[in-house]
Design a protein around this nucleic acid. Structure first.
Lengths: 131, 131
DNA sequence: CTTGACCCTCCAGTTGGTGGAACCCCTATC
DNA sequence: GATAGGGGTTCCACCAACTGGAGGGTCAAG
């Protein structure tokens, strides 16, 4: 398979796949003309990467997960640890966004949104930081 | 005030303040010796920026908000529009993270986490993309 | 033989800063 | 006057995870 084929089959842009090769996540072979040659195993890896990235795992997480994926002897506990670490990162992010949302919604609600220049949003933003 | 003073009073690192000057968000004057000289108005702006950034507004959003802040004649509706656009971006992000969290929690729960090599997390990650 | 769809490499830009090097300035102390 | 420290200055490089584009090679069809 050429890069275009794995691109359509994995759903990843060709650019991204080249980038993944650059940073050592996949190692396709090369044809005589310099074109990358991908095998089924490479496609599996790319699918794996696409799915993991879409779940928000970082590239470095993906590298670990891929190593575990390829290690037939790994303990599933190792994978679970990576997943749970990521899960709590997601929870932190969620809490943070939720707090933002609360403040912002409150401010937007208090704002009349008309032609008058008074605006509680700006008033809040302009208030000094606590501490 | 020198940069160190506004840094402590605004809670922003000096490096960040220099960066904000670089991209034109603040324009402190200069002393004869080349030191930046900040006035109260600059400090207000920096507080504004710190608060807006902590609410997740992008730098470009901040630029708009700052322009509105400094425009005595703005309509509060203009500000509200920026805030509401940002609010829906936050909502999208929240939904996305929540979906991730669901999938991941489900997978982690299904994973025994013991010494056996079978791992539903990896199995899921390895499955082909739909479509 | 030309057209057009692929493919290649390399460079630069994105966002919002952060780290560090190399150097200047100011004040206090010896 | 020398020196030590704690400011300040500039500039360059780096982070994640790509993305866009230039400039050019390759291949199959008409």
């Amino acid at each position: 398979m050429n890069i275009g084929d794995v691109a359509t089959r994995s759903g990843l842009p060709a650019k991204t796949i080249r980038y993944y090769e650059d940073i050592g996540l996949v190692r396709p072979q090369r044809e005589a003309n310099g074109y990358r040659r991908f095998r089924e195993a490479d496609l599996h890896k790319l699918n794996f990467l696409g799915r993991a990235r879409s779940l928000g795992f970082s590239i470095e997480d993906c590298r670990s997960l891929l190593a575990l994926y390829e290690d037939a002897d790994r303990a599933s506990g190792d994978v679970k640890r990576v997943a749970e670490r990521h899960l709590s990162a997601i929870d932190r992010k969620l809490a943070e966004l939720d707090a933002m949302r609360g403040t912002l919604a409150h401010l937007a609600e208090a704002c009349s949104g008309d032609q008058k220049p008074d605006c509680p949003i700006l008033l809040d933003l302009a208030s000094a930081p606590e501490g």
